[in-house]
């Protein structure tokens, strides 16, 4: 019976995530054991005393912990966006990049960095958010004027992606000095190295909100399996559902990209892996996708920051190295089904 499996999957996913985070936090140049981490966490809640020195407390709480948690939140959020977009667009290759949302967010954030509008996390997020919405609005307007069908949405997304990538390159090339360019490039490839608690809390709050909206619409997402008209025949208000779900995923993407840069392939690949575990019902698929994305990015980021120690690899580079073969595998599966 399939009824027992989702609860089991979600429970073991949560355990795996907790384990992954506590182990990932211990990995790095400074030696810290999982046991010490747990006791330090307990100490924060007033249980016992932390076994760590002040310096190591700082390493855990100000560097590794926010970074690892941001990896978990980004992985979860990107995977969620990918799963929702794939179902809504009926395109197994859809993810936040296909809709051009990530590129728009990058352009906005780069404009803030390079042109120096405002400062700090909030203005960077705001820039990314405005860029994401502009790009999203452009994709929606363009696809609507082309007839509104889902393949038009995807093609419009590709157009937006090209346009905003060009704008980003133009901004960087004309306005930035060498130092800034390096920073921007690192961030464009996706990096969690600057993670702070503000990022973690902002991203987690938006993730919680968007996840709640998506979970409230799981049967609506199921209804799209045979297309928009079939969904309408099953009582779904297609236009409303599409605008709502695409908007919240654009919002989540914007916030994630503003904190961690454009991390590719997580949204594309993880939903497929989760589907293999849960089947197609979104009530089962979405929670498992979110957990899988979180665990995945925690470990990928751990590899990215330690593999070439002390040199750090941008996490987006690692996800792409893993993602491209997986992408090809997805393409093969799609081909065999049509």
């Amino acid at each position: 019976m399939r009824g027992a499996r989702p609860a089991l999957l979600i429970t073991s996913g949560l355990l795996l995530l907790a384990l992954s985070v506590s182990v990932a936090v211990t990995i790095g140049p400074a030696d810290i054991t999982p046991d010490q981490v747990w006791r330090s966490v307990a100490a924060r809640f007033g249980l016992g005393e932390s076994p760590l020195s002040q310096l190591r407390e700082g390493i855990v709480w100000n560097l590794r912990m926010p970074r690892t948690l941001l990896a978990a939140v980004c992985g979860a959020g990107l995977a969620l966006c990918g799963a929702v977009m794939q179902s809504l667009l009926r395109n197994p290759l859809a993810d936040p990049f296909v809709l051009g949302v990530s590129s728009g967010a990058s352009t906005g954030a780069v404009a803030v960095i390079v042109l120096g509008w405002g400062a700090g996390v909030v203005s960077l997020s705001a820039g990314a958010f405005v860029g994401a919405l502009l790009s999203f609005a452009m994709v929606m307007l363009l696809s609507h004027s082309l007839g509104g069908s889902m393949d038009r949405v995807v093609l419009s997304g590709v157009a937006a992606m090209q346009l905003f990538s060009a704008l980003t390159s133009f901004t960087v090339l004309t306005s930035a000095d060498a130092e800034t360019t390096r920073g921007v490039l690192f961030w464009l490839l996706g990096s969690l190295s600057g993670a702070g608690w503000t990022d973690v809390l902002l991203c987690a709050a938006v993730l919680a909100l968007v996840l709640a909206v998506c979970l409230a619409n799981t049967t609506t997402l199921d209804a799209f399996a045979f297309g928009e008209e079939a969904a309408a025949n099953l009582g779904v208000q297609v236009g409303r559902a599409r605008v709502l779900l695409l908007s919240v995923t654009a919002l989540l993407t914007a916030v994630l990209v503003s904190s961690a840069g454009a991390i590719g392939f997580v949204g594309l690949v993880l939903p497929h892996a989760a589907r293999a575990l849960t089947g197609s019902s979104h009530a089962r698929l979405l929670p498992v996708t979110v957990l899988a994305g979180a665990v995945f990015l925690v470990w990928v980021d751990t590899v990215a920051r330690t593999a070439l120690d002390p040199q750090e690899i941008p996490v987006g580079v690692v996800t792409s190295l893993i993602g491209v073969p997986a992408f090809v595998a997805v393409l093969y599966r799609v081909r065999s089904k049509t």
Binding site: R90, T219, T220, D222, A225, G227, G235, V236, A283, V334
Partner: peptide, 21 residues
């Protein structure tokens, strides 16, 4: 559809108008 569905999954889609998310 490109979604991997069993026959039962397809038939269960018919319950969507009767169910709450």
């Amino acid at each position: 559809t490109q979604t991997e569905l069993t026959v039962r999954d397809v038939v269960a889609l018919g319950r969507i108008p009767h169910r709450r998310s």
